[in-house]
């Protein structure tokens, strides 16, 4: 060791080489440990994704359906009978929704609280007026039952103007493969007339319209429904005209002349 006048200490070349070797060794060990850590994290991440997928809350992919075949042709070989919905609301009140023996058709949106793709649909359903649903089609969201869903999350997600039914039985009845999934039920015939998955709401509407037009072209159930709005429109015009004429004559809502005390019963057939 050589001592300089100001007391500084210079290490010999042999000592300098030994320190460098220790430093390199420590660095190599640290890199090795970090590598193990990253590998562990990646494995853990894969296990989490696999578990989420098994729970039906994967990264929004339509399970077993390939790339977003929105409102594809029915998986069933022929149109099958639909089933009315019985379940609960997100507030866990008992609820029954009729989809058969109705004048309207019903678009059942099978969603879950956890799937990422479903989040876009929950958001869209908050503004039913902006959904652009064809006339005579009622939208109903269906999730699995309270024992298989996050009820607290559903209460946050549930739109106020679209019915939400929690019913695992409905998922089984309609053989829903995963979420999101859509089933179109023709009310008058009580038959499933279209179904499929979609990644975004505009796809659903576009293909829903196509399904209705196809059904109309083939003379199937929805044709009846599609004729209804025109009749309703005519009724509305007639009602508005009658209201106008009555008001012009000084007869306003609540006028006793609108409610005669005796009305003849219609003849029994």
């Amino acid at each position: 060791m050589v001592k300089h006048s100001k007391g500084a200490v210079l290490r010999s070349p042999a000592m300098h080489g030994g320190a460098l070797a220790i430093l390199v060794t420590v660095e190599a060990v640290a890199i090795g440990l970090l590598g193990l850590l990253v590998a562990g994290l990646l494995r853990s991440h894969a296990e989490v994704l696999r578990a989420l997928h098994d729970l039906g809350a994967g990264l929004g992919e339509a399970h077993d359906h390939g790339p977003t075949p929105a409102m594809a042709q029915p998986q069933r070989e022929a149109a099958t009978d639909a089933v009315d919905l019985v379940g609960t609301t997100p507030a866990e009140d008992p609820l029954a929704v009729a989809v058969t023996n109705t004048r309207h058709s019903t678009l059942l949106a099978f969603l879950s609280s956890g799937c990422l793709t479903c989040a876009g649909f929950w958001e869209a359903f908050r503004d039913p007026g902006g959904l652009g649903l064809p006339d005579g089609v009622r939208l109903v969201a269906v999730t699995r039952g309270a024992d298989e869903e996050s009820v607290s999350q559903l209460r946050r997600l549930a739109p106020t103007e679209v019915p939400v039914v929690l019913s695992s039985a409905a998922w089984d009845d309609y053989r829903v493969p995963g979420s999101p999934y859509f089933v179109l039920v023709d009310g008058p015939s009580g038959r499933v007339t279209g179904e499929g998955s979609a990644a975004a709401w505009p796809q659903v509407v576009s293909l829903l319209r196509n399904a209705l037009e196809d059904a109309t072209a083939h003379g199937q159930g929805p044709m009846k429904r599609r004729s209804l709005p025109a009749r309703w429109s005519t009724d509305a015009e007639r009602e508005a005209r009658a209201d106008g004429e009555l008001m012009a004559a000084g007869i306003v809502p609540g006028d006793h002349r609108l409610y005669p005390s005796a009305v003849e019963e219609p003849a029994e057939r």
């Binding site: 019985v86 609301t89 507030a91 009140d93 008992p94 609820l95 029954a96 009729a98 058969t100 023996n101």
Partner: peptide
């Protein structure tokens, strides 16, 4: 469909729907 809850119950025939809320 059988609607049941909050101490009330009702059978709903074809075309009927309902809810019991509190």
């Amino acid at each position: 469909a059988r609607l049941r809850g909050h101490g009330l119950a009702l059978d709903l025939g074809p075309g009927w729907e309902g809810q019991i809320s509190r």
